[in-house]
């Protein structure tokens, strides 16, 4: 930084610390470009840099009355700027991590639901094919076709359903194998 500019900024900060309000205009005029370029270098995002530089300027202004005048005012100001830039970078990094995490979670859920749906559709198709090959009587005994019969099941009906189920199982095995 140009030594004259440095001296002018230091003088403006010290005047403000002493209570001279008229030093605010030169301070903003001199310090704003310096802060903006510092923030741009730190963040590599012009829009975010402008917001952070503004925040830094306001923070410096509000804390200037607490400045220890034995310290270098410019170092103090850059200390505030560095802290704000680092905070902003951390915030951005956390936001990015959260977004990546959410996207990964969404894609996992979507992938599992698509896989489940495919498996379910395959099972339905296989079952429909096996059912097509069963006799209409067996389908009726299993309650898959025709109107459901009311009243309690008799032992003969239970036996017929058992036999129909065994035949369907054998048919399934003959089509798709033991597994």
């Amino acid at each position: 930084m140009d030594p004259n500019l440095r001296k002018a900024i230091q003088s403006a900060i010290l005047r403000l610390a002493d209570g001279d309000r008229s030093a605010m205009t030169p301070l903003v005029e001199l310090l704003w470009p310096v802060l903006l370029s510092y923030a741009e270098r730190g963040l590599r995002d012009p829009q975010a840099a402008e917001d952070v530089a503004q925040e830094v300027l306001f923070r410096i202004s509000s804390r200037i009355s607490e400045l220890d005048t034995t310290r270098d005012p410019l170092s103090w100001a850059f200390g505030i700027a560095t802290f704000e830039i680092m905070s902003q970078r951390k915030r951005l990094q956390r936001r990015r991590e959260r977004l990546v995490g959410e996207n990964m979670l969404d894609s996992d859920t979507a992938a599992s639901s698509v896989e489940d749906a495919l498996i379910e559709a395959e099972i339905h198709a296989a079952f429909a094919e096996a059912l097509d090959q069963t006799s209409p009587d067996d389908a009726e005994h299993l309650g898959l076709r025709g109107a459901a019969r009311g009243g309690p099941a008799t032992p003969a009906m239970r036996k017929r359903r058992q036999r129909a189920l065994d035949r369907l199982r054998n048919l399934w095995r003959s089509i798709y194998g033991q597994s």
Binding site: R21, M24, V28, W32, F58, R59, S61, S62, S65
Partner: peptide, 23 residues
Amino acid sequence: MVNLETLTARSLRHYELGRLRMA
């Protein structure tokens, strides 16, 4: 692009508030 006059006015407001807090 930031207007320097507005920025100065807002900075001055922050300065006064900071001084009041300290006082």
